[in-house]
């Protein structure tokens, strides 16, 4: 069984963001990079599927500059078997259709029976790439899964809906699944597995070889949202802060009355 996981490297969302010159994206200097949170669940589910079926081969694919290899190594240490870096220094500027097109071009005729992606990236967040990829490959897809079971090439998954309700969906492979937070508990790579991951294959393919889909949209600017309302900001010494807040709660609310 061949499994593909699509992963994106994103900045730590707690970072202090700055705009890049030209204001079409955030400035990528001085950021801490990590695996897109949703993709950690995708990697974990792939590894669990491999553990269940016994023999499987998991490819982790990511698109971006050289720095993404660091994050790909984490996926290899979690249990993926091989990595494919699609080398692209301007991946940040590509729309979901172009990104899905690149992955589809790679994945076509490679006989994957199951493809996992995160339900969205934390930085762009379109939530489209997994579904577009499936449509391009002619595979069925189920989005936002929070439960996954596999039996004889058939998948029974639960989609997360609003208000804690889930939809139960059955689908035959090959299929694409986009993973929601809470699907599983992503493992931490162990030291022996981190060492083993260094020996795993990490292939680099120039994006020009796979880029065939024209973009359908473009970013015209990126900006910080205006601060609305102008809430009060309290800073300083802890005991004084507590006193200040209690005073405000007494004045503005009835909760301490």
């Amino acid at each position: 069984m061949k499994i593909l996981v699509c992963m994106k490297q994103v900045p730590d969302m707690e970072s202090k963001f700055k705009l890049s010159p030209g204001a079409l994206w955030y400035d990528t200097a001085d950021l801490a990079w990590r695996m897109n949170e949703y993709d950690e669940y995708a990697v974990e589910q792939a590894v669990r599927l491999k553990e269940q079926v016994g023999t499987a081969d998991i490819t982790i694919l990511s698109i971006g500059p050289d720095r993404i290899k660091e994050t790909m190594k984490k996926a290899l240490a979690m249990g993926c078997d091989r990595g494919v870096q699609v080398a692209d220094d301007v991946a940040w500027a590509k729309d979901p259709l172009a990104i899905a097109g690149i992955i589809a071009e790679y994945a076509r005729s490679k006989d994957f029976s199951c493809i996992f992606t995160g339900m969205q990236s934390q930085d762009r967040g379109s939530g489209q790439v997994g579904v577009l990829l499936a449509e391009m490959l002619g595979f069925p897809s189920v989005t936002t899964i929070v439960d996954f079971t596999h039996e004889n090439g058939e998948y029974l998954v639960k989609r997360e809906l609003e208000g804690g309700v889930k939809a139960i969906v059955k689908v035959k492979g090959p299929a694409v699944f986009t993973c929601q937070l809470g699907l599983n508990s992503p493992r931490y790579p162990t030291l022996p597995n981190i060492m083993k991951a260094k020996k795993k294959e990490l292939l680099t393919i120039p994006v020009e070889q796979l880029q065939k889909t024209a973009p359908q949209q473009e970013t015209t600017r990126i900006f910080f949202p205006e601060k609305k309302g102008g809430g009060l900001i309290l800073e300083g010494d802890i005991p004084a802060l507590a006193d200040q807040l209690i005073k405000i709660l007494k004045e503005k609310t009835s909760v301490l009355a």
């Binding site: 969302m13 705009l19 955030y26 762009r124 967040g125 949209q217 473009e218 990126i222 900006f223 910080f224």
Partner: peptide, 22 residues
């Protein structure tokens, strides 16, 4: 805004203005 659509980016810390080409 300006014939474009504004969407959140980076966990809503930023906003991105996007133009459709289709």
């Amino acid at each position: 805004a300006e014939g474009c659509f504004v969407i959140p980016a980076c966990n809503a810390k930023l906003r991105r203005q996007v133009k459709s080409l289709s």
